[in-house]
Design a binder for these strands. Structure first.
Length: 427
DNA sequence: TCTGGGGTCCTAGGACCC
DNA sequence: TCTGGGGTCCTAGGACCC
């Protein structure tokens, strides 16, 4: 049935519910995962970082360190708190992945160097990351969400956007009812709390999810812009980092409200055509980006920071071994996920923290360790190797998925992709 | 007390082609 | 001899995010 356009418009307006976008992130995720295993640490300052470990390592370590003690009856959740490793005296280059709220009271936060964190809160318990378990819980909370609300965008290990707009019940209490349902479902499935913000778009939803942490729900309506959003510092905008914030501050712009006062033209003049116009839009709470449920990777990389700075000549063998291993790891990642790429590059960080990159695009797609190693080796010859190096990385970009074609899953009728896939098989 | 590892996107200059 | 734009790809660096 077709309706005359004024009626169609009226019906569309009536039937089309307001856009309702949620942002959800897990509370202190990596630490919360550890607390599932060590409930005796609840409420204590715990910092996660400084390495990786498998589930049973701590107990094994204790058996070795204290052989005189009887550990036979001890399970992970019964290890006395006194036996946990402390942050005090930490040496090394690790950073905190996350910290429990008790540790945050002391000023410890994610991405902070652990030596600095040790100064602020030496008594904090330091636990390494169990990535397998984190990934397992990550999959679990995401599948819990998609069973309730299928339009979900993956934003990393502990964060997603969800489109509530068309979900049955998604409009009830402006989204609060569905947020509550999802929050409870995730807690039941994983034992971990999360915080949810619901707003007319991703930009505001992201800010809203921070309002009520941990285990909070916040609803922001369009009319709340002035009262809830404008007082916030510009740094709270997803996309305004330390550099842009410093430049804004130098112009006397500290809050989003002050940003909104500036003319669009003035912002473009000082921050460029694209970024300036974007700043103007976001300060007025405008953001039309859709919730994207699927995406293909653009690149894959492996990098490592050495325990001590290395020199290309003096530490040649050690560096060479690490370099080869990085290439093998990238190749393995590509193969496991069914991708091949044709741009191969390296990244170096010198002892003064300056970074350089070099890359080369070859004629064929590859996921082969030896090919990657050879091309990356050529890239390495193009940088200054007289200075000491703290980090080395290997990257493969311009990816295609030749594996998908073999399984008959090639993306429909994209001639470029098909040609590329074909090329991948030819070489 | 120096600052991890995995990504994405943007900019800008130069090559090269039409 | 001098001089066009437009489009695309490649490369390097940097901001930003989780």
């Amino acid at each position: 049935m077709r309706l005359a356009w004024p009626y169609a418009c009226a019906v569309a307006t009536l039937e089309h519910p307001p856009r309702r976008i949620a942002h959800l992130d897990m509370d202190a995720f990596f630490a919360s995962v550890e607390l599932l295993r060590y409930p005796q640490l609840k409420g204590l300052p715990v910092v996660i970082g400084g390495g990786r470990r498998r589930a049973d390592d701590l107990l094994a370590q204790l058996r070795q360190t204290y052989p005189e003690r009887d550990w036979s009856e001890t399970t992970l959740d019964r290890i006395p708190v006194d036996f946990f490793p402390r942050l005090a005296g930490y040496t090394g280059r690790g950073v905190a992945t996350t910290a429990t709220y008790a540790a945050r009271q002391f000023g410890v936060g994610s991405a902070m160097g652990l030596m600095k964190a040790a100064k602020l809160c030496p008594q904090a318990i330091l636990l390494p990351v169990d990535f397998d378990e984190v990934r397992r819980i990550s999959r679990l909370f995401k599948s819990t969400i998609t069973e309730i609300a299928p339009v979900m965008e993956d934003r990393g290990i502990d964060e997603v956007y969800i489109d509530f707009t068309e979900v049955p019940g998604g409009q009830r209490e402006n989204g609060r009812a569905l947020a509550r349902l999802i929050q409870r479902g995730i807690f039941q499935a994983t034992g971990i709390t999360c915080s949810i913000g619901v707003a007319p778009n991703k930009l505001i939803a992201k800010m809203a999810s921070e309002f009520n942490k941990p285990n909070g729900i916040s609803i922001v309506m369009p009319e709340d812009l002035q009262t809830l959003i404008w007082p916030l510092p510009c740094r709270k905008i997803n996309g305004v980092g330390p550099k842009a914030d410093a430049r804004l501050q130098s112009h006397g712009i500290h809050t989003i409200g002050e940003l909104a006062e500036r003319e669009r033209g003035w912002l473009i003049e000082h921050f460029g055509k694209s970024y300036g116009a974007w700043l103007h839009e976001v300060s007025w709470g405008r953001d039309e980006r859709p919730v994207v449920t699927e995406s293909e990777p653009v690149s894959m990389s492996r990098e490592t920071t050495f325990e001590r700075d290395l020199h290309a000549v003096r530490d040649r063998d050690e560096l060479g071994a690490i370099f080869t291993r990085l290439c093998e790891q990238v190749a393995a990642d590509l193969q496991r996920k069914g991708y091949a790429g044709k741009t191969i590059g390296i990244k170096l960080r010198y002892d003064n923290f300056q970074s350089v990159t070099r890359d080369i695009t070859i004629d064929s797609f590859t996921a082969d360790a030896a090919t990657i190693r050879r091309q990356a080796g050529l890239c390495l010859k193009r940088v200054d190797l007289s200075r000491r190096i703290r980090l080395l990385g290997v990257r493969v970009g311009k990816l295609v998925k030749p594996g998908a074609a073999a399984e008959g899953q090639a993306s429909e009728a994209d001639p470029d992709a098909e040609q590329q896939t074909l090329n991948a098989w030819l070489f």
